[in-house]
Amino acid sequence: MIKIQNLYKKFGGHEVLSGLDLEVKSGELMVIIGPSGCGKSVLLKHIIGLVSPDSGAIFIDGIDITNLSEAKLKKIRFLFGMVFQGGALFDSLTVEENVAFGLRLHTDKSEEEIRRIVKEKLGLVGLENIEDRRIDELSGGMRKRVALARAIVMNPRIILYDEPTTGVDVAMIDNVNRLIRDLQDRLKVTSVVVTHDLENAYKVADRIAVFHSGRIARIETVEKMREMEEEILQKYMGKSAL
C-alpha cells in the first residue's frame, strides 16, 4: 500500500506539492489526472524516492521512505517498476539487454533462464522476435512496451506509469491502455498512472485522483467521475487542458 501524508515540495520559489495526501490500496490501479506540467510526474518520482520532499511522509507498505538512506532506498526500489514518459530505455543497449538489465545485475540466473524470462515478458506486452533490435529502430509505441517489459521483469509489486500514452500513435493508444489494464488484472500489482487525458484514465482506472494546485482535490471511482465530468473539467482542469 502507498500512503502519502502532507507532502510539500518547492523548486526555486515555485511550490509544486502543497500538502498533498493520497492513499493507494494494494492491488488497485489509481490514475492521477491533471493538466500538463502541474507536478504529477514530480509526485511519481517522490513515490519511488527519486526526489526528496521538503516535508511530509511517504509510506510504502508501512515504511516511511523519505528518511531512508540510499542503500535502504535501493532495497525498497526492488518493489517498484517504473515506465517513464519517454521510455528512458538505455539507447546504447539492445531490447534484450534493456529488459534483462535488472536480472543480470541483481540475480544469479543463468543466461538461458534470463533469455527465457525476457522472451516471456516481451510476450506479455505483445512483442515478439525483437530482442536483438536497437532502441532507435523501435516506434514510440514499441518503446513504451519495451519499457513496460523492463519495468515488470523483476516481478515488482508496484508499477508506476508516467504519461504512458504520450508520444504513442493514436492508433496504438487503446492498445497501450488495454495492456496496462490487462497487466494489472494478470499480475495483481498496485499501479499508479499519471496522465492529462481523462478518456484514457477511464479506460484503465479503478479510481481517479484529481491533482489540482499541488494537492489531490478529490478521488472518485470511474463511474462517479463520468457523472461529474463536466464539473471536474471546469473546476480543476480548465477544459482546454484536455
Binding site: E70, R77, M82, F84, Q85, A88, D91, G102
Partner: peptide, 17 residues
C-alpha cells in the same frame, strides 16, 4: 543526454548506482 532522457533516473529505479 542520458540525464535529459531520464535514463539516469531509470538506472536508479532499477536499483543501480
Amino acid at each position: 543526454s542520458m540525464k535529459v532522457t531520464e535514463q539516469i533516473d531509470a538506472l536508479k529505479t532499477l536499483a543501480v548506482e
